[in-house]
Amino acid sequence: MLIKLQPIIALSPVATAATIGIGAVTALGAAAIAMAQVDVKRSLSYSVSAYMGLVFIAVGTGQQQVALTLLFPYAIAMATLLMSVGAVISNNITQDLRQYGGLWSRRPISGLSYLVGAASLVAFPPLGCFWALVQLADNLWQSSPWLVEVVVAVNAMTALSTAREFCLIFGGEAKPMTARSPEVLWAMVLPMTVGAGLALHVPLLLWQWGLIPNFSQLNLGMALALISSTCLGWAVGAYVYLGDRVAKPVRFGPQFLQDLLAYDFYTAKLYRLTIVFVVGIVSQLIYWFDRFIVDGAINLVGLATVFGGQTLKYNVSGQTQFYVLSMMLGTALFLLVLCWPLVSQVFLG
């Protein structure tokens, strides 16, 4: 939809800037958040958001073809990753990365599939996403170089977070939750391995469709930058999360920054404090207004009528003096009203 809308977005500089801005912030923020999640599926879904941010950047800079080329290998890589992680979760119940470890020997098929998926998600030749990312970065280099840095950073952070997940799940010692963990039923293994196989064949498909650039046209410097960022991400991930060289939980930077990322920029809390809060308050106020003012006024009229009738009932006392008194009072009041101009002249001057 977004890609189809590109011609409309391109008409307005504001829309273009907004698309690029949203894309860059989403890509960087989501990639950073993905590194800080303890829930493996949350982590992967933030990597999804990061790539959607890259697609926004591609659309904002008028590269529909690159956006589509990126989406295809990304989709297969992400499907393989989620299938492999899903297969692991299905037998180990927990989604908490801190409770995993040592599954490589127990779940080799899932582990291999995960590796294939992780490698084809980032810039790692000759697998799928590399070609799209190189083209994206190459095109951006001419128009807005700072976006190249965004792409490289997102690539590095995604590599780091996938490496982190892999090391925490499959590396290290087995934990209580992972001590007994056989491979899952064939019905899950089959789509997982098919996904991995497909991911390995994506370059062939891209080549068939003429989407892989000629080697002579390839920007080698850009390719090298992307590959080295991938390797850097993996190396850091492996160094930190494989074994006990760094104490867990890992501390980096100030605590508030780590919390900011771990709690997804406090987005949920922000919503609760703003939109949800306002809607809740307004609805309570209107409900109160409806119940006590609108409905209350109506019920008051009803009650007043009933009360008036009940009170008037006591006028019928059966005593002649009472009727005479009320008649006298009524007549006096009537006369007073009729003669008010006269009375006011006489008494008030």
Partner: peptide, 10 residues
């Protein structure tokens, strides 16, 4: 708007 907000509070 009134209907929608009141419904939320029910």
């Amino acid at each position: 708007l009134y209907g929608a907000f009141s419904a939320i509070a029910q």
